[in-house]
C-alpha cells in the first residue's frame, strides 16, 4: 500500500505497514547507518541476549555471533564509494538479522566503488567454489599472508571464515548505481538452526 509519507498521518500508516512487513519477513534487527565498533558491540550483545532467550544451541549461538562480527566489519572495511557521495556514505550500510524455522540469515548492504566490486566478486566466487578442506587450506594461507610480521595483506579472511563457519555458500548481489561509478553490494549469509 502506498501512503503519502509527507503527511504525519500517512507516515504513521506507513510505519504500521513496515512493522507488519518486518513481522512477515521475521526480521529481528534492522539498522541503517554508520557501522562503528560501539554499534557492532551493541548488536552482538543484543543478539546474544535474543539467542539465549530462543534457547539456541551453543553452536548456533557461536556461529551467529561470528558471522555478525565479520559481516559488520566488512561494512566498515568495504563501504567505500567514490565521488560526491563518498564522505556521507563511507562506513555506512544496512544490517538485517532474520530468524526463520530452518536458519538465521544475516544480511548487509553498502555502497562501494565499481573498482572494488570486481575484487569482491573474485573472492566470493573463489570462496563459494571451495570445499571444506580447501577453505581450511586457503584460511591458513591467508592468515599467514595477513600477519603483521609478513605484512602482505590477507584478502578475504572474513569471507573465508564465514563460509567455513556456516558451511553454506555466501549469497551476494551487486546493483549498479545511476552515477556509473558506484554499486550497492548486498551480502546474505545463512546459518542453519538444525
Amino acid at each position: 500500500m502506498k501512503h503519502d509519507v509527507k503527511t504525519v498521518k500517512g507516515f504513521l500508516d506507513y510505519i504500521y505497514d513496515l512493522y507488519k512487513e518486518m513481522k512477515n519477513y521475521e526480521i529481528n534487527i534492522i539498522y541503517e547507518g554508520k557501522i562503528t565498533h560501539q554499534i557492532t558491540k551493541a548488536f552482538t550483545a543484543l543478539t546474544e541476549f535474543n539467542l539465549e532467550k530462543q534457547e539456541e544451541s551453543d553452536k548456533v549461538k557461536r556461529r551467529v555471533f561470528h558471522v555478525m562480527v565479520e559481516s559488520l566489519q566488512n561494512i566498515s572495511k568495504h563501504a567505500s564509494p567514490s565521488g560526491e557521495i563518498r564522505e556521507k556514505e563511507k562506513g555506512r550500510g544496512i544490517f538485517v538479522v532474520t530468524r526463520g524455522n530452518e536458519f538465521y540469515t544475516i544480511i548487509t548492504g553498502n555502497l562501494t566503488s565499481n573498482e572494488s566490486t570486481k575484487e569482491l566478486t573474485d573472492i566470493l566466487e573463489k570462496v563459494n567454489s571451495l570445499n571444506k578442506e580447501e577453505l581450511k587450506e586457503l584460511y591458513k594461507k591467508q592468515i599467514k599472508n595477513g600477519s603483521k610480521l609478513s605484512d602482505r595483506g590477507g584478502a578475504g579472511l572474513g569471507f573465508i571464515d564465514i563460509a567455513r563457519k556456516t558451511g553454506n555458500p555466501i549469497n551476494y548481489n551487486i546493483i549498479p548505481m545511476k552515477d556509473n561509478i558506484n554499486s550497492f553490494f548486498i551480502l546474505g549469509v545463512k546459518i542453519n538452526i538444525q
Binding site: F65, G146, S147, L157
Partner: peptide, 15 residues
C-alpha cells in the same frame, strides 16, 4: 572467541 582480525595478530604471537 576471536575475530579474523585478531587471528592474524595471534599468529604473530605464535611466530
Amino acid at each position: 572467541y576471536f575475530n579474523t582480525a585478531s587471528s592474524k595478530l595471534m599468529l604473530d604471537v605464535f611466530m
